[in-house]
């Protein structure tokens, strides 16, 4: 980084230096010298080494309900490599048909049946990665956390309406308020069924990461995000640990984030829509990303 940043700095000034060289007449009285100094950056957060695996859950619990009484309609297994700044998000369709202790069921019932531990167990069964940490939020917590950003930018692969917030999402980049972002996260009438919805959740995570990094230097911004996370997340982390975690997320390079949604075959069980997850693909994704939080083999879909 040291040498690279010096080169980058010099490269940034090179056009100016060339321009100066061109405009200085040949008959100038004496050689001119332009002095540039080197600036080198260093950053670190004490939040463990290696790869951290976080299971991020979004509950559809209604106001007044415990988060664990709601279905987890957002399920993302996120790997973060603190050494390299890489991160990966593996999306699990909420309708994935899995075996729970009481029989076959959608995976989004796992928290209701056995709490976050069971959800973590089911994800580990599917991907073969055991989460180190579980974070769960609901509608209010989600909006409160996004509220600290004001607006968030997300990409969409297609255009579709969000009638509840009177908005039509465009294909490409969209700027959403927290309320619009919640509608974006919950929208089900999508061409890609449950898989597209999970991909939208990944877009929201990526947009939040970009905002976090872009505004980390703003006065009180990180503290506002951490305070919203303390109030909006259900987790075993202490407030102090959450504060560290939020800061640590700024070490993740948004350009080094890869994402994939586990594929599967839509079907019907007991009259309800389900997805039979592509278990071989899930296992391959887990094996690929486990050690370094990278998907070097791509999504391996199909």
């Amino acid at each position: 980084m040291t040498r690279a940043s010096r080169v980058r700095r010099l490269a940034r000034w090179l056009p100016l230096l060339v321009a100066v060289a061109l405009v200085v007449p040949a008959s100038s009285v004496r050689p001119a010298a332009i002095s540039l100094t080197t600036v080198e950056r260093a950053s670190a957060v004490d939040f463990g080494d290696g790869v951290l695996w976080v299971l991020a859950l979004g509950s559809d619990a209604r106001p007044g309900q415990e988060l664990t009484d709601g279905h987890t309609d957002a399920i993302q297994l996120i790997g973060i490599n603190w050494r390299t700044g890489h991160a990966v998000a593996i999306g699990i369709p909420r309708d994935s048909w899995v075996r729970l202790p009481d029989g076959m069921s959608r995976i989004n019932n796992a928290v209701i049946d056995g709490g976050t531990d069971l959800a973590a167990h089911e994800v580990a069964e599917l991907v073969d990665i055991t989460p180190d940490l579980v974070l769960m939020t609901g509608f209010d917590g989600f909006q409160a956390m996004l509220g600290t950003f004001g607006e968030i930018e997300v990409d969409s692969a297609f255009s579709f309406p969000l009638p509840e917030v009177d908005l039509r999402v465009r294909e490409g980049r969209n700027t959403l308020t927290p309320r619009e972002a919640l509608a974006f996260a919950r929208s089900r009438d999508l061409p890609g069924y449950d898989f597209a919805r999970s991909a939208h959740h990944q877009q929201l995570l990526l947009g939040a990461l970009r905002e976090l990094r872009a505004r980390a230097d703003s006065e009180g911004f990180m503290e506002g995000v951490a305070l919203a996370a303390i109030g909006g997340l259900e987790t075993d982390l202490s407030p102090g640990e959450l504060y560290r975690f939020v800061h640590a997320l700024t070490l993740v390079d948004a350009g080094r984030v890869t994402a994939c949604v586990i594929g599967g075959t839509p079907g019907t069980e007991f009259g309800a829509s389900v997805v039979y997850p592509d278990r071989p693909q899930a296992q391959q994704l887990g094996a690929d990303a486990r050690e370094d939080a990278r998907l070097q083999g791509g999504c391996r879909a199909g």
Partner: peptide
């Protein structure tokens, strides 16, 4: 527990 800093060491190019 963490830092994100930039040092300008005054070394001239």
């Amino acid at each position: 527990f963490g830092y994100d800093v930039a040092l300008d060491d005054g070394a001239t190019l």
